[in-house]
Design a binder for these strands. Structure first.
Length: 463
RNA sequence: GGCUGAAUGGCAGAGUGGUGAUGCAGCGGCUUGCAAAGCCGUCAACCCCAGUUCGAUUCUGGGUUCAGCCUCCA
């Protein structure tokens, strides 16, 4: 039975979709005014694994991950760059898709964009005004009146009094608002800013409303899963609930899933702290699959510290798994094993990927043992299972030799030179000229090439 | 101040009321011309103080420390 930790109730719950066999999942995606960093990579990969697992379990999955392509920061960045805002957002959407490809992330089934859904947004704001949940302030902004919504704070475990008290002087008292906690639904445009016609002033939507409008538009008033980074729990998701439930009068998402942060030196990685690494920066030194593996070494809700050492370990861990697969013929998968059972138990326990990876290592050991004792042919079904389970995590799908010989990041010897040196060494070995053979091997070792003698042939890999 | 969540071996990171995580690193062996890889074995942990229990790292209470949210953030 699949259990998911639900942030709404702060406990693991048995997962039951609204419609049998069908899952509707909405995840808050990127605001596209800059390159994605590792924090974004974590959301992408975490929900990608969840998506893959649901698909593997035979569900029909509608997975929507929105793109916020209009907001204050986008406008500001466009002005700084002297660039049309559509051009800016298009650039970073393309960059995002490149990053996703590098990480082996499947494209969500839907990628709704805020600017494509302005009519749905306006419609929802109108309904909120009609129902008395929203009002237009003196400056022309349309605000959501949090005091009208009874359940405000239920996702983040707060109440209005706590919030008002905790806010202190951090929240500016905007004269146009009835309550400092009210948030903006529609914002009038300044001259030259991107804007849309509306029943109010010409302007643009506030940040939270797009997700309410688009998820409701795509999935209806109630759907199965709503996800995103932990930092969106408040206020973004809290506000989404307020907007959607006030508008439709129905329960919004059933399961809320929030992934933990990436940290640098035990501190949250974030744009405001300036301590972030973009995905493409890290890709200069490590491969996408290494980054992906690194992200899977901790459960998605736990914090995860980024360091070079961790990425190096990811490389070693993956090498161990790929070594087990190396040279095995392609055959049918081993059936009904304890390994699959344990793997699925781990995944069904709120997507426990570290535990699932542990199973892959046990399985690789079994593969190696069988290979040593009974030969390649008998080991192959184990390898096939290893690769199949790996596919659920989005790893181990490359050709093992290609992975181990890693042509992506080296500045050393070419393949041709390596092969030539290996041939020369094989000749020396055949003549039992160990001094010459060792000299050639040392030469390769200093270039970061490890050799493995297997009978009459020699395998090599880059460290 | 309010609200969350954490504290596990040298490092990373799961999990459990009583024996195994797993990976990296270390140590011994098998294997190898010697290595590498692999296999076998091995070392080693559960923040502190009470309580519940035959037994607690795991449950309860208190404490300490850390991280996050309460302001844009994945």
């Amino acid at each position: 039975m699949l259990e998911i930790y639900n942030t709404l109730t702060n406990q693991k719950e048995a997962f039951k979709p609204l419609e049998e066999n069908k899952i509707r999942m909405y995840v808050c995606g990127m605001t596209v005014y800059d390159y994605c960093h590792l924090g974004h990579a974590r959301v992408m990969v975490a929900f990608d694994v969840i998506y893959r697992y649901f698909l593997d379990q035979g569900f029909e999955v509608s997975y929507a991950r929105n793109i916020t392509d209009i907001d204050d920061k986008i406008i500001q960045r466009a002005i700084e760059n002297e660039e049309d805002f559509n051009h800016l957002t298009q650039r970073f959407i393309e960059a995002m898709h490149e990053d996703e490809n590098s990480l082996g992330v499947l494209r969500p089934s839907l990628e709704p964009r805020a600017t494509d859904n302005i009519p749905a947004i306006i419609k929802m704001i109108e309904t909120l005004i009609e129902k008395g949940y929203a009002y237009q302030g003196s400056t022309g902004n349309v605000y959501y009146d949090v005091s009208k919504f009874e359940g405000y704070g239920k996702l983040s475990g707060r109440n209005l009094d706590d919030l008002r008290q905790g806010a202190g002087d951090r929240i500016r008292i905007d004269g146009a608002k009835d309550d400092p906690l009210d948030f903006v639904l529609w914002k009038p445009a300044k001259a030259g800013e991107p804007s849309w016609d509306s029943p109010w002033k010409r302007g643009r939507p506030g940040w939270h409303i797009e997700c309410s409008a688009m998820s409701t538009e795509l999935f209806g008033a109630t759907f199965d899963i709503h996800g995103g980074g932990k930092d969106l729990q408040f206020p973004h998701h809290e506000n989404e609930i307020a907007q959607s439930e006030a508008c439709t009068g129905q329960h919004f998402a059933n399961y809320w899933m929030h992934n933990g942060f990436i940290r640098i030196d035990d501190e949250k990685m974030s744009k405001s702290l300036g301590n972030f690494f973009t995905i493409r920066e890290v890709l200069k030194h490590y491969r996408g699959e290494e980054i992906r593996y690194f992200l899977l070494t901790s459960q998605y809700r736990s914090p995860l510290n980024y360091s070079k050492e961790q990425l190096d370990r990811a490389n070693k861990g993956l090498s161990r798994l790929y070594v087990a697969l190396r040279g095995l013929p392609i055959v049918a998968v081993l059936k009904n094993t304890d390994f699959s059972a344990r793997f699925h138990d781990a995944m069904q326990d709120d997507f426990n990927t570290p535990e699932a990876l542990a199973v892959l290592f046990d399985l690789s050991r079994a593969t190696n043992t069988v290979r040593q004792k009974e030969g390649k042919l008998n080991a192959a079904p184990y390898g096939a299972l290893l690769k199949q389970l790996g596919s659920l995590l989005g790893v181990l799908q490359m050709d093992p030799d290609e992975w181990l010989q890693n042509d992506e990041h080296h500045q050393g010897l070419s393949r041709e030179t390596i092969e030539t040196l290996i041939q020369a060494r094989l000749t020396a070995r055949a003549n039992k000229d160990w001094a010459q053979a060792d000299k050639l091997r040392d030469e390769l070792t200093t270039q970061g090439i490890s050799l493995e003698d297997k009978g009459t042939e020699t395998l090599w890999r880059r460290d």
